[in-house]
Simulated scan of single mutants.
Amino acid sequence: MSKPDFISWTQSHLGAFYEAREDEVFANAFDAAFSPSCEVRVNHAPSTLDALRESVSSRKVATRGVALSWENLISTGDSPDQPSVVAGTLIVTRSMMFLIRAAPAHRLTHINFSARVELPEDSNVQADGNDDRRRITSLYLTSVDIVPPIHFATPHPVSQEERE
């Protein structure tokens, strides 16, 4: 079985935990994506894998659904056995459980990321379901949360012709 390219691997592994609805599915997807010793930087500040896990998990509260949009993905590697850096933009659109003007409220998270994907030196890392031991060993991300504008109907005067 051929191994997927680094961009597809990164999209499927990052996407899996952002889209996960159940806590157990989220935890398994998160663990399948990251090496336990992964270096994490969020908005240029050192962070931890546990802090990243909590941040992503806490954003699932009151979420009805998630849509992912990937932009400008690039990869430095072409050999599955060698490390590669995958970088790009991920836009996470969350549909909330509450309504605004009879439609679900939305929250957008724009994430610019750079992830080093490689076979970790830690021999305790288990292969995922596809017999793939690759993991993200370094993650740099910059993210910002955006609330899209609410579009209100603009009233206009009714002309005499429209009334008749």
Results as ranks from 00 to 15, higher is better:
Thr63Ser: 10
Lys3Trp: 12
Asn28Leu: 13
Gly15Arg: 03
Glu71Phe: 11
Glu121Trp: 05
Asp31Ile: 13
Leu49Lys: 05
Arg133Thr: 09
Leu99His: 08
Ala62Arg: 10
Asp23Lys: 13
Phe152Glu: 15
Pro83Phe: 05
Phe26Asn: 05
His13Trp: 04
Arg133Met: 09
Leu14Asn: 02
Glu22Val: 06
Ala20Met: 03
Ala103Cys: 07
Asp78Phe: 15
Ala51Lys: 12
Gly129Lys: 11
Ser47Gly: 09
Glu121Thr: 14
Asp23Ser: 13
Val147Asn: 11
Glu24Met: 08
Asn112Gly: 10
Glu24Arg: 11
Asn112Glu: 14
Asp145Thr: 13
Asn130Ser: 13
Glu54Pro: 04
Asp78Gly: 14
Thr142Ser: 12
Phe30Leu: 02
Val85Tyr: 05
Glu162Arg: 07
Pro104Ile: 06
Ser138Leu: 08
Val61Met: 10
Ser35Cys: 15
Ala45Trp: 00
Leu68Phe: 03
Val66Lys: 04
Ser57Ile: 06
Ala45Gly: 01
Ala102Pro: 00
Gly15Phe: 00
Thr89Gln: 14
Leu49Asp: 09
Val125Ala: 01
Ile111Gln: 00
Pro104Met: 10
Ala20Glu: 04
Phe98Gly: 10
Leu141Phe: 04
Ser37Leu: 12
Ile74Leu: 14
Arg116His: 07
Arg107Gln: 15
Val40Ala: 03
